[in-house]
Design a protein around this nucleic acid. Structure first.
Lengths: 240, 240
DNA sequence: GTCGGCTATCTTGTCAACAATATTTTCCAC
DNA sequence: GTGGAAAATATTGTTGACAAGATAGCCGAC
């Protein structure tokens, strides 16, 4: 388990954090990371001394996480880790498709020589990882590529929404990358996206990004039909 | 001030509410309605006895509102009503454009005879309002139409995101509808959307919706250039 | 007259105890 | 043995007081 402590996607753009807010980050990470199983009850008192933070902090953290869709809270019955169904995962991917499409367009329209080189560099890293059969690394680079494009878009609203959607997808991070042939196709699609963005073609960039994420959604759907009983290990990587 | 207590957009899909959550709704409404001016400080103690709710409830409400982008909270300095710039409003409209485009497509793809009649009915109401020079009423119907389509899409993820985006747009509700010629054009565009949705043409529906909201964004941008000092009365209606 | 530090005040963040509510268990009637 | 009511338990929601941090005003030095 030599994974990066913080993916560059997580904390980017979230400086200036308040004290209890730090607790929120840790709790969130625990859920995203998978330390807290889906449907597990989150008793405030337990969290409080498990994470060594005041109960009030746990409370506010849970409120935020609820709003973010990571936990479910019922009036007098407490909070539990929310399990997102694969139907919902498909919805999330569809939403990501249009939002990242928007971001890709914006990124293309404000591309510079320097930033074009940056995205291309990320793509090169992905190609290298894939050649080296490093699937986990490739998955990381995937995330980095998407994050880079969103960042270059300068579209803070889209960025905020996409980040929120991403955190709900953790359970499905591995599904798609493990499908035979999928990594290669993903590289293909990414390549098209990067070229469109780097060349400043907004229309093409948006189409390429939408096509890519739509394909991911389809791959997820079909993979679900086969591996109904999911017994995949839960670790912390991003889906592409 | 004979406005509906709750627009059908606000609370739809949010049943089963906890006690303090009710307080959240009231506080939120106060901000959206404009009772709390932008940049106004929201001292927890004051809110507490102004709204007759425990301070803890105010606290959680503020946390949620922050996450929703309606208030800003700095570590030890309290919360204040967030002022969204018109640049940000344009971003929000762009995000809405793609998300509602997705919703429109989904709605078209699962349209039925009954639901087609429903959307058409809303459009008829808008036409009537416009003929009667009822701009405020037309604005309401506008919101109802968008809400209806999102509802018919059955896309809960898109619905959630769109609702969140909408709440941040309150300050700009009136800007566009007051531009000469804009209501008529809006009706035109809505008509195209409704026809595409009702006829089950997903592609066309998405394009029409995106075109419409993109135009709203453009209208907002140009209106800003003219009326730089905004002195419009702040009431609670929705932009189209 | 202005700059720097210091105190005074305001507000949020923390805490511990208590009240309210949902869930589980137990016990009795049938 | 099963059904149902009632107590026991567990957990959230509330309250008030206190601590910590931030801002603003004041005072003195230069």
């Amino acid at each position: 388990m030599v994974l990066r402590a913080e993916s560059d996607f997580e904390d980017a753009g979230k400086r200036r954090r308040s004290p209890d807010d730090d607790g929120y980050q840790r709790l969130r990470e625990a859920i995203v990371k998978g330390d807290l199983a889906p449907n597990q009850r989150l008793v405030e008192a337990d969290m409080s001394n498990a994470f060594r933070m005041p109960r009030a902090a746990v409370r506010t953290a849970l409120v935020r996480l609820e709003h973010e869709g990571l936990v479910e809270r019922e009036p007098h019955r407490g909070a539990r880790v929310r399990l997102v169904s694969e139907a919902e995962a498909v919805e999330i991917l569809q939403a990501r498709a249009v939002l990242e499409g928007l971001a890709a367009r914006a990124a293309a329209e404000r591309i510079t020589r320097a930033s074009a080189a940056e995205v291309r560099a990320v793509l090169t890293r992905q190609r290298a990882a894939l050649n080296g059969q490093d699937l986990l690394g490739a998955s990381d680079v995937n995330a980095a590529l998407h994050a880079k494009i969103v960042e270059l878009s300068g579209h803070s609203t889209a960025q905020r929404l996409i980040r929120s959607l991403n955190s709900q997808m953790v359970r499905f991070q591995y599904r798609t990358i493990l499908i035979p042939g999928r990594p290669a196709q993903s590289l293909e699609e990414h390549s098209a996206i990067v070229e469109a963005v780097a060349s400043g073609d907004g229309d093409k960039a948006e189409r390429a990004m939408r096509r890519h994420l739509t394909n991911v959604a389809k791959a997820l759907e079909s993979s679900h039909r086969e591996a109904a009983g999911d017994s995949a290990p839960r670790r912390r990587r991003r889906t592409s």
